[in-house]
């Protein structure tokens, strides 16, 4: 099941849970608003979950995409520094360690989602997930 937002959503193209005020359930059951999440919430939730592991994904490069309003972000993921590229809308928010929500176009994120964001830059370390058991 892919998390498509409804056409009526003002966050067209983005999943609905990034909208300011969205209720997020942490792994221990605690409920928080998306804008109140902190680095520890993700780290602790991953610890509780058992299956998921938090990786540090460093932004290596941000380049324009042929898709309008999209960018291609190259990450260096985890201890192995695996290179992974993702194509996302410029307003798509990532969670940067110790900093919080950040996007390539924070003004647009704030406009569309009311979620306040910092500017995502090369060198930022984002929270990402992998499966724990890869043996």
């Amino acid at each position: 099941t892919s998390p498509h937002s409804s056409p009526s959503s003002p966050s067209a193209g983005l999943p609905p849970f990034f909208m300011k005020g969205s209720i997020i359930q942490l792994a221990d059951g605690e409920l928080k608003r998306v804008e109140d999440l902190r680095t520890e919430d993700f780290v602790q939730s991953a610890e509780v979950s058992g299956e998921l592991k938090i990786d540090s994904s460093t932004v290596e490069r941000i380049e324009c995409s042929r898709t309008p309003n999209a960018v291609i972000i190259q990450f260096s993921v985890g201890e192995n520094k695996a290179q992974v590229c993702v194509e996302v809308l410029v307003e798509y928010p990532f969670f940067v360690f110790g900093q919080g929500w950040s996007s390539c176009c924070p003004d647009r994120t704030t406009q569309l989602l009311a979620l306040s964001c910092a500017k995502l830059s090369v060198g930022d370390v984002c929270i990402s997930l992998t499966l724990k058991s890869l043996k």
Partner: peptide, 19 residues
Amino acid sequence: VPVFPWHSLVPFLAPTQSD
């Protein structure tokens, strides 16, 4: 009010494991 799981919010950047 919909409640979303925490892990929806962060990308799943599993590197491709090629053995």
